[in-house]
């Protein structure tokens, strides 16, 4: 008959630096604690996560010397697991998890509208190239273009700010765009993301 070392002895050995004692404790109570967690959350992955968090707490408490041995190692671990299960449900209540199925993927409906890193780099490059091209425009055209595109001003506001008529502002904008296109075509610049 195999001699089973008592939990309290294993805990003591672990606190004294014997790592193997922890492995024995985990393996001894693995099924019982995992089954308890699984019976509440009904999900294998979440069970693994909570089991892991439970023993992380156990390890920290034992290593810090905060555990008082009263011969109740398993009930203590079960209490930690129980509290973490409650935390899990509390967290899920605040932020419910939606899992898609094979037929429906939530990311086909909603998406992150932010650019990925590669596209962001390309966009920054295009913006900087475009700035250089705009710098080459005649001053009056550049002024109108900057006000319209970057400051989102209406042509009425532009005309009031520059002291020219709306038609002149429109004309300058038109020539600014024509000139930009000319330079882009002439130099074979590609400004697309």
């Amino acid at each position: 008959m195999e001699l089973q070392i008592d939990d309290s002895v294993l805990v003591k050995n672990y606190i004294n630096g014997e790592e193997k004692a922890l492995e024995v404790l985990i393996n001894r109570h693995n099924q019982r604690i995992s089954s308890f967690i699984y019976s509440k959350v009904l999900d294998r992955d979440i069970t693994e996560d909570i089991f892991q968090d439970t023993f992380i707490k156990v390890i920290k408490t034992l290593r810090k010397g905060s555990y008082s041995e009263e011969g109740k190692f398993l009930p203590w671990v079960m209490r930690i697991a129980h509290n973490l299960v409650i935390d899990h449900f509390r967290k899920n209540k605040r932020m419910p998890m939606f899992e898609g199925s094979d037929d429906f993927n939530i990311f086909s409906v909603i998406g992150d509208d932010q650019l990925n890193v590669e596209k962001q780099i390309i966009k920054d490059q295009i913006d900087s190239d475009l700035n250089l091209l705009i710098e080459e425009l005649p001053e009056d055209q550049k002024e109108v273009l900057m006000m319209r595109i970057y400051r989102d001003m209406s042509f009425k506001e532009i005309s009031e700010n520059t002291g020219v008529s709306i038609n002149t502002a429109l004309g300058r904008m038109r020539y600014a765009l024509i000139n930009l296109r000319k330079v882009i075509e002439k130099n074979n610049i590609v400004l697309t993301n």
Binding site: S35, Y38, S39, Q52
Partner: peptide, 17 residues
């Protein structure tokens, strides 16, 4: 499913170690 016995996988145990 609630009656099924579950067990944390060896990788989880190894991680804890």
């Amino acid at each position: 499913n609630a009656c099924k016995l579950a067990k944390a996988c060896p990788e989880t145990v190894q991680f804890l170690m």
